[in-house]
Design a protein around this nucleic acid. Structure first.
Lengths: 226, 226
DNA sequence: GCCTCCCGACTGGTATGGAAGTATGCATTC
DNA sequence: GAATGCATACTTCCATACCAGTCGGGAGGC
């Protein structure tokens, strides 16, 4: 981690440090287990320890960092059980969202989903993995929006971010082709207005990490809690 | 708010102030829209402003408080859309949990659920509303535990807390008899090992707030965002 | 060699003062 | 009387200083 953020004095320092660190963690530039030092960071970006400290507190609330009193602050390692938990919740929620969207799908809405999939294929052909992860977020977000449950996404986003950390870190490990095909299967069901099929396709899609996880865990064991 | 917490010097001050304030908010002793002051609170419990400030930050991360820069910190008002969102997620997740529990229910497990319901009836007969809300938490928590998804509860807890604020504030507004009967219907389905029935009973149970919410909103409009 | 103890260099936690922004009441002006 | 300007008393935010707990290394004793 050599980069440092450019400070904008319009918003509070603590807020900016928080956003910057969060971004660095989610992108995998700060790897699980790495140590964060209040004084080191504050010294580097030229502010006092206090705002940095407050950023740490917010990261800890997000589950992205772990503050060990009088000992140090560390990027939290990925907990397998937390990932499984996030997956379970996503499967439950997004399958319900799929049903709801399938029930109200129209031609215009289907076009919006198709546009997203087209964008995913373009990103894949450019082998732009970071962009693909962003587009994957957008696809799942669109599902919440079209279900008329925008607010649900903000909760899912927090859960999904834990899973995305895995992807950014081991960016080549997942098969984007397969994921896009699964997205397509979901959209097919939406187009047909078939709620059962949409739910089934979504559940199948969200089982995917169950396949990837052991592989990733074997390849990079120290990213995970013991 | 006249009470004040007793400080235990084993855990950090900030942590204790956070827990204390959180409890006060969830119990409805601090009502939505009320103002929080760093200096007022710190002066009252005899600590410096810093730990109080850090507690505020954590409350804001939970969505329980709102920090308006240079203006003040306020107990956040309840957002109807946030409650609806929490309800949606709970319905999706807990109906899946119900299915899973129904599939693996045995006599011993059913006894544990029955014991919870008995406790609920006792609390009701004592008209102990606070205890009843606690027991309601425990019932839904037990469901997650028996499904083997303990970690899911911690996410649900955050969502449920927003809904519980409503109950503590307008504590007489809900019909505990009806809720217990619905709990019983869920346990009946678990006893029968009938996943479909368990899911249906849970969904019906979690639709309950849809009935209560407009009534509560009409009765206490300034607890809600405009 | 091995263990124990102690010292120093860290860590996060707390206290406090001051800077900057905001709301409010009052005097002044039109 | 209505509107404007201003002093003042707040607020959060940041910087600084100090405290206490933790960890690691080296000296000394066995």
């Amino acid at each position: 981690m050599v980069a440092q953020p450019e400070l904008d004095f319009a918003v509070s320092t603590a807020q900016q440090v928080y956003r910057w660190l969060r971004e660095e963690i989610l992108r995998g530039n700060l790897i699980p287990g790495a140590r964060l030092s209040e004084s080191e960071i504050s010294g580097r970006i030229g502010v006092s320890r206090q705002p940095v400290r407050e950023a740490f507190i917010r990261l800890a609330a997000d589950g992205l960092a772990e503050i060990r009193p009088q000992r140090g602050t560390y990027i939290s390692r990925i907990s397998v059980s937390a990932v499984m938990c996030a997956r379970f919740i996503r499967e439950a929620v997004e399958s319900d969202l799929s049903r709801k969207v399938a029930a109200r799908a129209d031609a215009e809405m289907v076009r919006r989903f198709e546009a997203e999939i087209a964008a995913q294929r373009r990103a894949l052909s450019r082998e732009d993995a970071v962009e693909f992860v962003n587009l994957d977020d957008r696809f799942h977000r669109l599902l919440a929006v079209e279900a008329g449950e925008d607010a649900v996404w903000s909760v899912l986003e927090g859960l999904k971010s834990q899973m995305n950390r895995l992807r950014h870190i081991t960016v080549k490990a997942f098969d984007a082709h397969k994921l896009i095909d699964q997205h397509e299967a979901i959209v097919d069901a939406l187009r047909a207005g078939d709620a059962d099929a949409a739910e089934a396709a979504m559940r199948r899609h969200l089982c995917e990490v169950l396949h990837d996880l052991p592989e990733i865990q074997k390849r990079a064991p120290d990213l995970f809690c013991p």
